[in-house]
Structures are given as C-alpha cells and as structure tokens.
Design a binder for these strands. Structure first.
Lengths: 304, 304
DNA sequence: TCCTATAGGTGAGTTTGATTCATCTATAGG
DNA sequence: CCTATAGATGAATCAAACTCACCTATAGGA
C-alpha cells in the first residue's frame, strides 16, 4: 500500500536536517555522525529522484520540493509523537474505583507497596459507594467490588470471600467479664439485593458471647471501627479492614478459642474489555490478588 | 525533538499489520517473513511498554491502544505518501515556454530525442509568442527566449547566437540566373526594443546577390519558410529552423561561396529559482544546450 | 594574499540490528 | 484424533546504516 514511500528512517533524518538547516546539528540531535546524515539524505534524494537541499558552502538550504517534503514529514512526525506521548502517558495512569471503606481502610494504606513495586504508575483511587457501570463509565479503568461475584462474566475475577471477625479494644474485652451486656457493632447493608449473612445465628454459635449482647448497625465499616476504637463495643468487620488497628494494638480479636470467622460476601474485580490488555491494569490486578491473600478466604476455597 | 518516537520502520510494520489484521498478510505486503513482523511488533510493544495486539489463535486483534496508534500511524503514512507521490509526479513533469516558431520548427521535431534519453519525463510545450514572466508565472518551469541574453542574471543562460542564412528551393536558385529580381523573405521584428540586424547592409556584402533583390517581411519564421517552400523567394532565417526542409532537400542554402552567416540575436534559457534545483529542468537544459550546438554560434564564441 | 577553521562529500570498512530459519505452541476444523 | 494454520521464539545470518579517514570548498582572520 505504501510501497512507494522511501525508508522512513531517511525521512526522519531529513526532517531533522530540514528543521535545523544543518546536517551537523541534525546529526547531533539524532546521535549519529554528520556523515550518516549526509548519506541518508543523499539516499533519499536518489530514491525520490529529487533534489531536496541546495548545498551551499558551510550551509544548506531547502529547495521548493524539500520545503514541501519537510513540511509533510514534520507534520507526520509531530502527530505520531503526540499520539505516542499521549498513549504512554495514559498507559502509566490507572484509576481504580472502589468503596470508601475498602479504599480508606485497606487500599490506601497498602498503596505504597504497589508504588514501590511499580514506580512509574500514577494511581488514582475513586472512592464512591455508588456503583459504577465500569463498562460505560470511562473515568475508571477497573473497579474493586464487594458483593456476589458474577460467575459467567469474563470481566469479573474473584479475589476471595470476606472473613468477618470480632474486634474490640483490649480494655473492652476485659470489661466484658464485669458488666456483660456488650454491643456488637455491624455495618448496615445498603444494597437490598445482596444476601445478608445471618449475624444473629452466627453469634449464637459462640458460647463465650454473652447472651445479652445487642446488635448496633452503622452506615459503613469505617464508622463501626471508629466506634469500636472509642470503646463502644465489639466490631464485626472484615479482617482486612482492621489490619492497621490490629497491628498497632488498638484493637484485638476476640480472646476466645474455637471461634470461626463469619463468612461474608466476595471481593472481586471488574475489568472492562477496554482495559484488559493494559499492562498497568494487569499489574495492579495481580498485585491486588497476591496482597489480599492474607485476610480473605482465598479463591479456591470459595469455589464450592 | 522526536527522541521518544519509536523506530519508524516498526511503526510502518505495525501500520500494515493493524490494517490487515494479520501478521502474515502484512509480511507479504512488506516483502518480509511473518517472523520479521512478529519481531518488529514485539519490539514496538516493548519500546512503548504497551500491548498493541491481542493474540488470538490464528488471528490478532487490536487493543484500544493499538487502535489509536494504528489510526495515527495510518494517517501519518497516508499523508506522507500523498506528498511524496505528488512531488515525484510533479518532478517528472516539465513545462517549457517558448516561441511558436522555435517550438514548431525545432523543438517539437527534436523532442523524441529527449524523450528517448529521459523516458520518464512528461514534457509540455507552451508555445506563445507573448513574453511570460517566468519568475511569476508558475505555469511554466522554464522558458527558451530569443533576444538579448541578460548578462547579470543568474537565471539566464545563453544557448548561442542565431546564425541566419539564405535558403530557397533548388528550383528557385536556378531561376535566379534567368530573371534576376529575387525576393528576400525576412521575419518582422515584433519587439521594438530588440536591436535589429542590418539586413540591407549584410545583403550588400554578398556580391552574388542580384542588386534588384527586394525584401519582404513576414510575421514569423514559419511563414517565411512556408513562402520559401512555395518558391516565393529566398528565406533569411536561422539555420536551426530550416533543419528539416534542408534535410529533406526541399530547401538548400545559397549556392555561392564566401557567404558568411548573418549573426542574429541570442537564444537563451530563463530558469526561475524555484525550478533551478529540479533534475528534469537541469536535464532538459543541458540536453537543449548540447543539442543546439550544431546550428548556432556556440556559447564561448559569443562571449566577446 | 595566505592560512586556518568549518561544513559538507566520498568511499571503504565495520558494526549493529533486522531478517530468516528451524522449531515450537495452540487450536480450529475435518 | 489428526492435520493444517497463525503466530512465537531464539540462534544464526545478512544487509543496511554508521563510522573513519581523507577530500573539497570557502569564509574570515592574520
């Protein structure tokens, strides 16, 4: 189709020489010797059967034909350059949508680990609790969701099932034996279509839990954890989301033996087709998968 | 300036592969092996840190990034191709302006020799007797003029000085001895600013010329020659322009000894700056110079 | 006027990177 | 299940591009 086109590398050389009106400067810009530029332009002229430069002593100037070709070559290179720059810039940007709690309590605190591993990537977190149609909404490259992972959807990839545990301040656990009417702090389900775990039934399987325990609901996990930190009760939340308070000793898990975690819903990613091939998206998704292993029931255990 | 741009040959390969959506077909189009295409595109992807194709079995499809780059690459190549085609097409066309007589009597009959030597050139002759400002009038690439060659003009190049001779039909020369009141057929000067040779004086130097000879003027050389061919008299015209009638024996030079040619004005070319670098222009000019040698006083003799 | 420094041109020799070859993988279709 | 096809891979090969040494022309200073 473009068989008549001369070698594009000679056009690149010509573009530089025409722009700088000097073979020497062009050679410098292209990191080659002036001889190379001379050879290339001579070859281009031979190929086109056209004289592109008037050689004067110690200087060159463009012929009318050279002028036209230079304009075309410059335009072509400029536009290609723009596109390539834009693509590589966008390639290094990654916008992930997720819930406010997951973002605040797990993702943002862990981000430095990802940044360490992939320093080139500019990562943006869009923390909004309203669901986004990731297929349509081009503001996000991928989303991390909590709910029921769709089975027959190539875009959805299960990260693991939430493991809910009981967490309170060390002081609160000690108080329990004294006045035994504790509060269990839970997150209210905003989406009515999602199945809610039977918290009441699970609590009754724990023999150490005082029967007078009351359940109090909060809008999101963050509030639950804040309440627990304030000594208002026992937070029933994902292990994931209390990693920092646990690490700092502000909260501890229940001091009882034989208590299994309450299985919650799935964490999963949705990666739209338009992003699936992007290496930063892949990198982030696999980093997320690997990093989430501790703290969730891993993927294969949930495939019942 | 365009240091970030990947190798343009890889972009050319990518453009073909993206357009044909097949490495094999692209390889065929580019006259290389499919392996070469694979390597090139792999290298391009590595360079851009970007995945451009989704490899499926027995087929490839573009990623969204690939799509954008393909569009940009295609546009760039297309525009370059257009410009190059236009330039080479124009490079092979040559329009020469000259007088009707010179065109009809010398140039056009000789053109096949030029076409033989440079078969690629499309030559147009603009035969108009009104002068053209070759610098302004872009319809002609160069002109051949008759008159006084400007000395201090880089664009003007003297071809030689006209050599006027006396030509008539063989029958007419024979008649001369019988009834000795011949006509001398000359061309009238249209441009009053040009010096006119003193025909009268020159005729008187020819002792064999009957003193009763009358001078008759015609609009142009063509008419003079036609009149001579019709046996109406002795044409005083440039040797150049009677080459064909001489060759065919329709006209012969004066049968007298010791008659020098009458020197006329200059034939010269004007080549505007915009054309000076074009190889077809140079080729034609040098062919013209070489071919005109016979029939004109050559260049060096006129440099008095 | 001569000399020097500069920009570019030339052609042989070398090097780098693109191409090919042989081999492999995956899978669509018979 | 087998075959044929499109592409991937890595080592070997080959050719295009680059460099080197030397040349030309000339502008500008001594």
């Amino acid at each position: 189709m473009f068989a008549r086109l001369p070698s594009l590398s000679s056009l690149r050389t010509f573009e530089a020489a025409a722009r700088l009106l000097s073979f020497k400067s062009a050679a410098h810009e292209l990191n080659v010797s002036p001889t190379a530029v001379s050879h290339q332009i001579r070859a281009l002229e031979d190929r086109l059967q056209l004289c592109l430069f008037e050689r004067r002593t110690r200087s060159v100037e463009l012929t009318p034909e050279g002028e036209r070709l230079a304009a075309a070559a410059h335009k072509a290179m400029h536009e290609l350059n723009e596109t390539v720059n834009e693509l590589t810039r966008q390639a290094n940007q990654l916008t992930v949508g997720t819930t406010a709690s997951f973002a605040a309590l797990w993702l943002v605190p862990k981000l430095h680990l990802f940044q360490q591993q992939y320093p080139g990537v500019e990562l943006n977190i869009q923390a909004e609790d309203q669901l986004r149609d990731v297929e349509q909404d081009r503001r996000v490259d991928m989303v991390i969701r909590y709910g029921c992972c769709p089975q027959a959807n190539a875009e959805a990839s299960l990260l693991g099932q939430e493991a809910l545990g009981l967490f309170a301040t060390p002081a609160y656990w000690q108080q329990l034996s004294v006045h035994s009417n504790p509060s269990v702090l839970v997150t209210s389900w905003k989406n009515p279509r999602l199945p809610r775990p039977n918290v009441q039934a699970w609590l009754q399987t724990i023999e150490q839990m005082p029967s007078a325990a009351q359940i109090r609901s909060f809008d999101d996990e963050n509030q639950v954890i804040q309440a627990a930190l304030a000594g208002q009760g026992i937070a029933l939340v994902s292990r994931l989301l209390v990693a920092l308070p646990l690490h700092n000793g502000w909260l501890t898990a229940e001091p009882w033996k034989g208590v299994d975690n309450l299985r919650g819903l799935d964490y999963y990613t949705l990666i739209p087709e338009r992003s699936a091939s992007r290496s930063t998206v892949r990198q982030f998704a696999s980093w997320l998968d690997a990093t989430l292993k501790s703290g969730l029931y891993p993927r294969h255990e949930t495939q019942n």
